[in-house]
């Protein structure tokens, strides 16, 4: 569950920590990769939402920085079974980015620089559940962790929080992403331990 605040006032006590089934806690920040790391300069970086009608809403890096940002303190749950508590991020809410987007879509396919994709219901990107995050722990997000910006959807397994996010394709029908087309669960709720297809 995300806690959003302007000044981290919402930080939880360690005793509030809960591990989803099958997970263990880590204190470092493991890096998992399915390929080489894209180095995307902020001068060429762009984030685009494409509707099912083909209408494009794009933001350059300066345009993203001009939007209202939020601080979020969230727990991360990786499908490889590690969880990391109270990670601190700053980013722009998808509610802000989707505010002027007219769509009838129910599904989203997230695209990353480097070709990675992941799918999720559009509803899971709304109502304060997701951000395009560009700061981690008060610093610019390292490329190894998805910088300059990554999607952050902490209520789902971390493979849904696409590193090096490039854009979101809004779809009327669900379309599996990179891991979802290779055995991983279509939705990926850590609290229901939805790791693999059929879970």
């Amino acid at each position: 569950m995300a806690i959003v605040s302007r000044g981290f006032q919402g930080r939880r006590r360690p005793s509030d920590h809960r591990l989803p089934p099958g997970q263990y806690e880590v204190h470092d920040f493991p890096v998992l990769s399915a390929g080489p790391t894209p180095r995307v300069g902020r001068d060429i970086w762009e984030f685009t939402i494409v509707t099912e009608a083909g209408v494009r809403h794009s933001w350059s890096w300066p345009q993203l920085m001009a939007l209202p940002a939020e601080d979020a303190v969230v727990d991360l749950h990786c499908v490889t079974k590690w969880s990391k508590f109270e990670t601190r991020w700053r980013g722009v809410s998808l509610d802000t980015l989707l505010a002027d987007v007219e769509t009838e879509a129910d599904y989203a396919l997230v695209h990353s620089y480097g070709g990675y994709t992941t799918n999720l219901p559009l509803a899971d990107l709304m109502d304060g559940q997701a951000w395009v995050a560009f700061h981690y722990d008060g610093e610019d997000l390292d490329p190894e962790h998805g910088g300059p910006a990554r999607l952050l959807v902490p209520h789902l397994y971390l493979w849904k929080s696409a590193k090096w996010v490039r854009g979101i394709q809004l779809l009327l029908q669900d379309e599996p992403g990179f891991w979802e087309s290779a055995g991983y669960h279509d939705y990926g709720d850590p609290w229901r331990e939805q790791r693999y297809q059929g879970d």
Partner: peptide
């Protein structure tokens, strides 16, 4: 998504 793949990479 223009330039989705057309970026520099560092071998991980």
């Amino acid at each position: 998504f223009p330039h989705e793949l057309d970026v520099p990479y560092v071998e991980g």
